[in-house]
Design a protein around this nucleic acid. Structure first.
Length: 461
DNA sequence: GCATGATCATGC
DNA sequence: GCATGATCATGC
């Protein structure tokens, strides 16, 4: 079947909305599928849409699925969260990067642009408790990376390209870029390939649209979510989004917490006051993470307080972990690795002055280096997993509970500590989580040691 | 001063 | 009501 226009294609695709994969198969003319036979096969969802809906055979050519329109078809899952919102279940993996070939390309001639310039994305709703063929197709969406997204993705591509050019493909990480990432995938983790300007083999990677990007798109087209924007379509970003954010923040360098609180009419005693201030500096009410750009790019704001002598008093905490998830995964597929591999941080520094007030001195974007992630952070995670499996030992000490999970003496980069509103360890309590051995303990999270954090700060300025 | 546990205020 | 981004408190 031929489609003359993208509109026609999209219209046809939308016919599958609210149908399950099983229904799409059954309605296909001339096909005689045994669902039980094909449903467990790899690529089931894509194949059903390609063969049964669009009536063409699957291919892995480097040209798009609909060559005459230059449109690539992607079938991708969303899931429903406990609070009712939806999220992309995974990143959208595009084509594999051939480091040698890609080095010779420009953005326009790149393998990414060649195949993925126009995407027809079909979202289906994944559910743990349902059979694959009963998942419904929810929505079709056409994405051609116009305007701001296109600009940001072009710069992302250039960052990846520069890494290859510099012989640093082995240091690539999804967290280095904003929307377009270079991700590893499944068995690819173990696939080492050569790269042009270095003797070090690198993990094979593919272009992807970050999970956070896909979540934002899904919420916009399916849930009609309305987020604040930091930039509008008229904003010029000759040096990219990050530089633009820096430009907005630089204006406030040298101002104290007090100054800034007054300027933005914030009267708050929150421990995360600096976070609120940074949001206001960017023109956002509420949280920075609730803006289109930060949500798509998965940028997490962090603020650090420095003492007068430039030391840091506190370690840096992250999300609470889920013991069950840790025990059930290997490091390479773990939530923690995935978090650091795909998260970019916006770090703001506030330094104490002689009056005891904190001065906003600088901000910068940062990602945890892969070498640290797959080094010391991995060690802490592995040790945590080992102890979770063997049984966490909790005892009482001066009225506090104490445990044997890897603490600060473990490796001076990453450790485990409690993080909850209250120190509680009762079944079902919101401050407690269930351990694999059936006991309950106060929720814990992974922390980065302040000593390590200090090493990422460039305080020469 | 360090290690460890405990807890706060806020947005959503 | 909980997750988040943090900071406070205490014993050694």
């Amino acid at each position: 079947m031929k489609y003359d226009t993208i509109k026609e294609l999209l219209q046809y695709a939308s016919k599958a909305e609210n149908k399950t994969f099983k229904e799409v198969i059954e309605e296909a003319k001339g096909y005689d599928y045994n669902i039980d036979e094909i449903s467990y096969k790899k690529g089931f969802f894509g194949h059903v849409v390609e063969e049964c809906l669009f009536d063409y055979s699957p291919n892995s050519r480097s040209e798009p699925d609909f060559p005459e329109l230059g449109v690539e078809l992607k079938v991708t899952p969303i899931r429903r969260n406990k609070n009712g919102t939806i999220s992309a279940k995974e990143r959208l993996v595009l084509n594999i990067i051939n480091y040698v070939e890609e080095l010779t390309k420009t953005f326009e001639t790149s393998s990414f642009s060649k195949k993925n310039k126009n995407l027809l994305i079909m979202f289906y709703l994944y559910s743990e408790s349902m059979k694959k063929e009963d998942f419904p197709i929810v929505k079709s969406h056409f994405n051609n990376f116009k305007d701001i997204d296109g600009e940001i993705i072009r710069r992302d591509w250039e960052i990846i390209h520069k890494m290859i050019e510099d012989g640093r493909a082995h240091e690539l990480s999804e967290s280095l870029t904003l929307y377009l990432g270079a991700c590893t995938k499944g068995a690819n983790h173990l696939n080492l390939v050569s790269q042009p300007n270095s003797n070090i083999d690198a993990m094979q990677r593919a272009y992807c649209l970050k999970q956070s990007y896909m979540t934002t798109i899904a919420r916009q087209v399916i849930s009609n979510e309305n987020l604040q924007r930091i930039i509008d379509s008229k904003t010029k970003m000759p040096q990219g989004f990050e530089q633009l954010v820096m430009k907005k923040l630089t204006v406030y360098y040298g101002k104290t917490q007090d100054n800034l609180s007054k300027e933005f009419s914030i009267d708050s005693k929150a421990k995360s006051l600096n976070d609120l201030l940074v949001a206001r500096m960017l023109g956002v009410t509420g949280k920075v993470s609730r803006t289109i750009e930060f949500q798509k790019a998965n940028i997490v704001p962090k603020s650090i307080r420095l003492e007068i002598n430039n030391t840091i008093r506190e370690d840096m905490s992250f999300k609470n972990f889920n013991p069950k998830e840790i025990v059930e995964h290997d490091w390479i597929d773990s939530e923690l690795r995935d978090y650091f591999e795909s998260t970019r941080f916006l770090i703001s520094l506030f330094r104490k002055n002689n009056q005891g007030d904190y001065v906003f001195i600088k901000a910068f974007f940062w990602s945890l280096p892969i070498s640290v992630l797959d080094g010391k952070v991995k060690d802490t995670w592995q040790e945590t997993k080992r102890i979770l499996i063997n049984g966490v030992i909790i005892d009482n000490w001066n009225g506090k509970s104490r445990n044997n999970l890897p603490g600060k003496t473990f490796n001076h980069v990453c450790h485990v500590r409690p993080k909850a509103a209250l120190s509680m360890r009762y079944p079902g309590d919101s401050n407690s989580f269930l351990l694999p051995n059936g006991e309950w303990m106060t929720k814990q999270c992974f922390w980065l040691d302040k000593k390590y954090v200090r090493t990422i700060l460039d305080l020469t300025v």
